[in-house]
Design a protein around this nucleic acid. Structure first.
Length: 507
RNA sequence: GCCGCGUUGGUCAAGGGGUUAAGACGCCUCCCUUUCACGGAGGAAUCACGGGUUCGAUUCCCGUACGUGGUACCA
């Protein structure tokens, strides 16, 4: 196949992996699968001041959990290694120098203090953030204004410098975005972005262009927040002479906070009580622990499903998908332009839907640790699978299972007796005493119910008045599967025990 | 401030010159269930505003408003 599709996700490993990040991964992954292409993971670790221990491993863990592994990555190098930009450092300088030689970039020796001074002195209410651009560059200390000798002297003296792109004047940069159509920017309002930092590392702007070119990326997907810097990248592709190989761009809509305004942030999750990261993230410096979807009890397939629906839809009424289906159906044409507010209630609904479809054995395995964490040891995995089958339809999150099923393994520690006490009678005590004596193990809930009904009639009590008390005795509250199903599950002996101890409390 | 991008119910959204403007989440009512949930049947609720173009605009164009992103030697 000519023109093999190659896409990439290029995170910078600085902390938790955000919902929006995973959605970008997902769109990349789906697009690659759909076109039988290659999904590349490239680590953008050019900012050494932001290095965070463990953050790269964490990204791999998240992708593995979500079921969206990369075809090529630092851990699984393909033909374009290395896949970490810090390890590619020597590759970038030549391109920066090429640009300088061509007159499309220049050395700038301004110190951070000088830059700050420039911004301060030029700042007005009209223009609160002055840029390093065609208007100001002539006043700065750079190779545009210095003589060749001066520049050489500074370079030889080892004075720190950066390389900046020289944005042209009075041009309009056009490109076609796969989602938004024709986009244009005036070069006059784009600043001379730093390409190579004083530590010799490229900035994102240079690195993304060089690496996308070198790695033969055909389609570049990224968040909408990158749209304003697109003209810099386009110019770089042109200046470097690679325009014919430039990837097709697609800028994805943002995921917004549910209330108010703005991009969804981890703080919103904490404030509103839902996760924002794929998996929980512990900041190695502050020790701060931030929730993840995984730990909250989401199934990875549900997470992927709810994410894809944030900004994309199939154009049909289908809402629940497997990853395989999505790999077939996904298309960029059906991606929305506008940002989507995140709705946690709907997210939980997706999870509930996927729980219903999930295999019971698998669910049992996933949920077992939650029971053990609550001090309920599961000795018989088959029993747990049965319990899961019994209660799954009332679970939205995996963490709901303990609440919904622990009484199947352990007598409830509190009985909501207030619901039955007011109408309690000695006749009822007599009924339960006699009925429980006749109880025997059986797999047939219908037989149990028939015997119960018969016994109630014998005592002249309406069955309806006895059902809720029985449920409370066994479950502790007004919830759960059918009572006779519960009895067949826990057995006659356990039922007798629970009835007897409840009777004591009711006496 | 400037620049970019966007705007269909509370939320996700389909649709795209003539429609009763789908569907889902959430909410409400009812049914099922001697519980809760699931499931089922209903209900309330939407084209930001103003101008064009047109026989006719939610749909096309232009403004305005609002939102959002960017405006770093961060990505």
């Amino acid at each position: 196949m000519e023109n093999q599709v190659r896409v990439r996700f290029a995170p910078s490993p600085t902390g938790g992996l955000h919902l929006g990040g995973v959605r970008t991964v997902l769109f990349n992954y789906l697009f690659a699968k759909k076109h039988k292409g290659t999904f590349v993971l490239r680590v953008e670790d050019t900012d050494q001041t932001r290095f965070v221990e463990g953050a790269e491993d964490y990204i791999f863990d998240c992708l593995d959990w979500a079921g969206l592994p990369a075809d090529e990555s630092p851990r699984k190098p393909g033909d374009f290694a290395p896949y970490r930009q810090s390890e590619r450092k020597p590759m970038y300088r030549q391109y920066a120098e090429q640009l300088i030689a061509q007159g499309n970039a220049y050395y700038a020796f301004d110190t951070p203090e000088e830059l700050e001074k420039m911004r301060e002195s030029l700042k007005t209410t009209e223009n609160p953030s002055p840029q390093y651009d065609h208007r100001t560059r002539s006043q700065m200390r750079n190779s545009l204004n210095l003589s060749t000798e001066e520049v050489k002297a500074l370079l030889d003296a080892g004075v720190p410098y950066v390389v900046r792109i020289k944005m042209p004047e009075n041009e309009t940069v056009h490109f076609t975005d796969l989602i938004r159509g024709d986009i244009s920017h005036e070069t006059n309002v784009v600043d001379d972005k730093v390409l190579l930092k004083s530590d010799g590392m490229p900035t994102y702007h240079l690195a993304v262009v060089v690496d996308d070119y070198l790695m033969k990326i055909t389609h570049a997907f990224r968040g909408e927040e990158w749209l304003p810097s697109a003209p810099i990248h386009i110019m770089l592709w042109k200046y470097l002479g690679w325009e014919a190989e430039m990837p097709k761009w697609a800028h994805l809509p943002l995921i917004l906070k549910p209330d108010g305004n703005g991009k969804l942030s981890k703080r919103d999750g904490e404030r509103l009580g839902f996760p924002v990261f794929a998996m929980e993230w512990k900041d190695p410096k502050s020790g701060e622990l931030i929730d993840g979807f995984k730990e909250k009890g989401f199934l990875p397939e549900a997470f992927v499903n709810l994410l894809v629906m944030l900004g994309w839809n199939p154009g049909t009424e289908q809402e629940i998908f497997t990853l395989e289906e999505l790999s077939e159906l996904f298309s960029l044409e059906r991606v929305h332009k506008g940002g989507a507010k995140f709705d946690y209630e709907k997210a939980k609904w997706y999870n509930q839907q996927h729980i219903q479809r999930a295999d019971n054995d698998r669910l049992a395995g996933l949920v077992k640790p939650y029971f053990e964490a609550k001090g309920i040891s599961i000795t018989d995995d088959q029993k747990l699978t049965e319990a899961v089958a019994m209660v799954k339809e009332r679970c939205h999150l995996l963490t709901d299972f303990t609440e919904q099923a622990s009484f199947l393994f352990q007598a409830p520690d509190h009985l909501d007796l207030d619901a039955v006490k007011p109408k309690w009678t000695t006749e009822k005590t007599a009924f339960f005493t006699e009925w429980s004596e006749t109880l025997q193990d059986t797999a047939n809930a219908a037989d149990l119910e028939a015997a119960f009904t018969e016994c109630a009639a014998k005592h002249g009590i309406k069955k309806g008045e006895l059902m809720m008390p029985l449920r409370i005795m066994l479950v502790g509250g007004k919830f759960g599967p059918g009572v006779f199903d519960i009895i067949t599950f826990i057995g006659a002996a356990e039922t007798k025990k629970r009835v007897a101890s409840a009777l004591l409390l009711l006496a």
